[in-house]
């Protein structure tokens, strides 16, 4: 029982990332009809927003310490961050410590801008082209974005830790009467799950309860009719691309303490997120979220020793096996809508 709970918890944070990325993918596909293979790169750029903010907060001035030597035997240049100089050592260190949460404030406008520029600058030229063309151009864009990040930040992962007060893990098992250490779960992963739920809720609320959202939903259902009413639906869809980019970016920012970011991290999530979208049902926002969490938890179960010894390699194929089963039994996915991607 404790192992069951443990793997459900483990699946939630990975499922959160899948759900957030898949949500953005579905938003873009549902509004603009574009299959965006650069969406994983947006997740990665979001993560590097956190790296950038951490770097900015760590900008330092150097003082020479004659008592210590560097690797060449010269007096050591000791770096002190400017924020520690401006706000005092303790406050400055605390600001640096909270660089990841602070990066959220930076990432939202940056990611919206990146999304809008991407859509207006490149992707809009491919609206009327076949999906294969869209996939090729967005995949190419993803590779370009990766290489740009690698040029500036290198190929190695960059440590971007959570605030020290939110590091460590909580013994869940004790709450439910299990032995100590039976169900340990990191605080930050819990925060990630709650954050993901909040973002998903905010996106749904925006679409459901605002006039802007209502027009977007109407446009998703019948773009031509909405246009004939004199509404500039293209402009609103462009904004939705920006919002989808921001959702992916925020997922990336908050993911950095879980695994140190590197230039390739978007690709690691991209293919699986597409499977999530297909399993959830093309164009279905609730389907994307449901499938994200479902596949995250299943993947977690498939990585247990019991599963890998019973069926070797199951941890690497479980998502695809489930995708095949779902598509055979429900060709439109779990919550797919009739008519979407069926022409």
């Amino acid at each position: 029982m404790d192992a069951l709970l443990l793997q459900i918890l483990n699946g939630l944070d990975k499922g959160s990332a899948y759900a957030l990325i898949a949500l953005g993918l579905t938003l873009i596909f549902g509004t603009l009809g574009v299959v965006n293979f650069a969406h994983g790169a947006l997740f990665m750029i979001g993560a590097f927003c956190a790296v950038f903010i951490q770097g900015v907060l760590n900008l330092s001035y150097e003082t020479v310490d004659e008592t210590q030597k560097d690797f060449l035997g010269n007096p050591l240049k000791v770096k002190t961050p400017h924020v520690e100089n401006w706000f005092g050592p303790e406050t400055g260190a605390a600001i640096i410590d909270w660089s990841v949460p602070l990066a959220i404030l930076f990432a939202i406008p940056v990611m919206i801008a990146v999304g809008v520029i991407m859509e207006r600058g490149l992707i809009k030229h491919f609206y009327k082209r076949p999906h294969a063309d869209q996939i090729l151009v967005t995949f190419g864009l993803a590779i370009v974005l990766q290489e740009v990040i690698k040029y500036f930040y290198g190929a190695n992962p960059i440590p971007t830790p959570a605030p020290s007060s939110l590091a460590g893990a909580f013994d869940f098992g004790v709450l439910f009467g299990f032995d100590p250490n039976a169900i340990i779960y990191p605080y930050w992963r819990m925060i990630y799950f709650v954050f993901a739920i909040a973002i998903i809720g905010a996106v749904f609320a925006f679409l459901q309860f605002t006039t802007y959202g209502m027009v977007v939903r109407a446009g998703m259902a019948d773009r031509e009719t909405v246009s004939m009413l004199g509404i500039n639906i293209d402009k609103r869809f462009t904004m939705m691309f920006g919002i989808a980019a921001a959702v992916a970016g925020l997922a990336g920012v908050m993911y950095t303490p879980i695994n140190p970011p590197n230039y390739h991290m978007g690709m690691d999530f991209l293919v699986l997120s597409f499977v999530v979208v297909v399993v959830g049902g093309m164009g279905s926002l609730p389907g994307a979220v449901l499938a994200g969490f479902l596949l995250g938890i299943l993947e977690s179960f498939a990585s247990t020793t019991w599963a890998t010894t019973t069926i070797p390699g199951i941890n690497q194929v479980i998502i695809y096996v489930v995708a095949i089963i779902v598509l055979l039994t429900r060709p439109r996915g779990l919550m797919g809508r009739k008519g979407v991607m069926e022409e």
Binding site: A3, Q7, N10, I258, N259, E299, S300, S303, T304
Partner: peptide, 20 residues
């Protein structure tokens, strides 16, 4: 001894059972 795929990026599912 648990073998992990070379392409793994998140090891939480492998690490969570270790303490118990």
């Amino acid at each position: 001894n648990v073998l992990t795929p070379l392409a793994s990026t998140d090891f939480s599912a492998y690490i969570a059972p270790v303490l118990n």
